[in-house]
Write a protein that binds this DNA or RNA. Structure first.
Lengths: 229, 229
DNA sequence: TGCTGTGAAGGTTTTCACAGCA
DNA sequence: TGCTGTGAAAACCTTCACAGCA
């Protein structure tokens, strides 16, 4: 029932692509076409989808609506997941107003901060509460996932508070490795890390060597993204 | 000379940890200790470091300064890399002001936007230029990497412009799969994707485990981060 | 003695290629 | 005929365990 981490990391892309197709009124798609849109190989896509129980019709392709539904179930998105954001600065408020939150299966139910001026103002459609109120607010509103958008030094403290309040998933934007108990999941996004990875891949200015085979598709995309345990 | 993608994804963490140790005046560290701080296994760390040519002393550990230097070379950070940001909204300006950019080996040399009011204002220490000026500005200032922090519909257009201007690394925050020519690298960060991955891992919502098995280490961290080709 | 560096083993993910169904 | 679903093989990454050096 559980998929390998690399697979899990690719599934959101498939789901987003399928929903995009549905919005365009397209109801069926081949693995080839869907894979192209997601920047993966078609064999990978077929295996990944078979992993989540989505099945296509031979000779036809995948039913977008059905496959998306299967993916949502598999991702735990068959019900709306309640998220909160700590940190109502520019990063936090930008994330709070990102429309993709709602359309991806989430509901923003709380925003927290410690700065007096912003507490009480409305960000992302919800009033900003003081961080100290997190335990009560989390319980009241059934908070499940928390985005941490605070300065590094405060991140661990926020994580501890969240874990104590029963939050089992953290999305950490602070440049700090969080320490959490077993059973709590942390997804870490760090600007410096991403830039350094890019720096590595663009370090050698000379000609590229990896692929010698002439690509079948005109524009070959080298996308490096998420993953691992 | 080139490392596997999972390795490359872990290297920035090592580098950041080593620099943190150096700031604390610690000059030597064992693989065990460094691995703990980075949330990886010590065997993985040793192999990764041997991969980049960093060598420790048996019976002693790794020299922080020397290892960090080796990592910087390997990551292409032995010289300062010049980056730009497109999109001076809340996300873009938050990123521009993030101090970690400078301390991680980068120099912010340009910020672009299309909105009349912000063009000309100063963000992240540089004046905001109009997106149309990207080709000239990129050439003038030797722009190498570009962060894309614009709405989804505009991202591909920005990417095309950047690629035409010779930029070979893109960090894309827009919820769109970019199509770029071979040789250009794209690192994609998407809030919805991260949240959906978290949703998956926290889908089964069993009771919050009280205090069960006393862990050997006080806090066991389940960190899920970056990686893959 | 202590900790690194690394063969060898093991496990996992990707790729290939094609059988099989609509 | 067209495209999926999946064995089997290959490639890859991690883990283990210990030889070897300071």
């Amino acid at each position: 029932m559980n998929a390998p981490a690399p697979v899990v990391g690719r599934l959101p892309g498939y789901l987003q692509a399928l929903e995009s197709l549905l919005r365009q009124g397209i109801t069926t798609v081949s693995s080839e076409e869907l894979a192209r849109r997601c920047g993966v190989g078609s064999a990978v896509l077929r295996r990944d989808l078979s992993h989540v129980g989505a099945s296509g019709r031979r000779g036809v392709g995948y039913d977008c609506a059905q496959s998306a539904a299967r993916l949502r179930v598999f991702m735990g998105l068959d019900r709306t997941r309640r998220i909160g954001i700590v940190g109502a600065g520019r990063l936090g408020s930008a994330l709070a107003d990102y429309a993709g939150i709602r359309t991806s299966g989430f509901e923003l139910v709380a925003v927290f901060d410690v700065a007096a001026p912003v507490v009480g103002s409305v960000v992302g459609g919800v009033p900003v509460a003081h961080l100290d109120a997190l335990p009560e607010v989390a319980a009241e509103r059934g908070l499940e996932l928390l985005v941490i958008a605070v300065p590094g030094p405060q991140a661990q403290e926020v994580a501890d508070l969240a874990v104590a309040a029963g939050v089992r998933g953290l999305l950490n934007f602070a440049p700090v490795v969080l320490s959490v108990p077993s059973g709590v999941h942390v997804q870490h996004v760090d600007l410096a890390t991403e830039l350094q990875v890019l720096a590595h891949y663009t370090a050698a200015a000379p000609a590229p060597a990896p692929v010698s085979i002439p690509a079948p598709v005109s524009a070959e995309t080298v996308v490096i993204s998420r993953e691992s345990q």
